[in-house]
Each structure stands twice: as C-alpha cells, then as structure tokens.
C-alpha cells in the first residue's frame, strides 16, 4: 500500500482534468456532490451509487454503555448511524490490486 491520503483537492483536480471547467468550479462541484448526498441522507433517504456502493441511515435503539475508564454505566441515547456497503465491483477492484501485492512472497503478514 502506498499509504497516501486523498482529499477534496485531488478529487477537484481530477474533475478539472477530466471535464475542463475552471479549478474553482471543479472544487465547487465536488462540494455540491457531497452536499447533495449529505442532504439526501439527512432526509433519511438511502443513496445508491451503482458500481461503487450504497449509503443508508440506520436507527439504533437506546442501550446501556459503560465508561471504560471508570466502569460507570451510562445510557447511550437512540441515534442514527450511517452505514456504507461497498458494491462488488469496488470490492473486486480493491482485491484485484491489493490482493496481488499481498500475494508476493516476503510481505509482512
């Protein structure tokens, strides 16, 4: 693994290279895409991006948790959590490239 981190800047750059809008507008569009997805999820909608994966909001009930430091019981309020399920296409793409690298002898287990 190369261990790098990709951020909005690289996504905007890719859009800039691919579509030929200005850098500013490319950055705005990346933001708009993330914003539209966030808005849909906030409305409780599921977001499905074919060949990438799906985002869904799940409702969690109240449960009793524990402060791991003090052992004290604390109630955990009911809440919404976001779950991402990668599509098979994405899983396969990742395992094709990383699995190959991992299969080489001498790699740290």
């Amino acid at each position: 693994m190369t261990g790098g981190t990709v951020t909005r800047a690289q996504l905007s750059e890719a859009v800039y290279q691919e579509v030929g809008l200005s850098r500013n507008e490319s950055a705005d569009l990346v933001e708009t895409v993330l914003g539209e997805i966030s808005d849909a999820l906030s409305r409780g909608e599921m977001v499905k991006i074919s060949s990438f994966g799906s985002f869904a909001v799940r409702q969690k009930g109240e449960r009793v948790g524990r402060n791991p430091k003090t052992g004290e019981e604390v109630p955990i309020e009911p809440r919404h959590v976001l779950v991402f399920r990668a599509s098979h296409v994405l899983k396969d793409q990742i395992n094709t490239t990383l699995g190959k690298a991992a299969g080489k002898p001498g790699r740290k287990a």
């Binding site: 693994m1 190369t2 790098g4 981190t5 990709v6 793409q93 990742i94 490239t97 690298a101």
Partner: peptide, 9 residues
C-alpha cells in the same frame, strides 16, 4: 482505495 490509500473528506 485500490492503491491502499485513504480518502478523507
């Protein structure tokens, strides 16, 4: 992700 990179947004 296929390179093993993280994507942080």
């Amino acid at each position: 992700l296929a390179r093993g990179d993280r994507v942080e947004l």
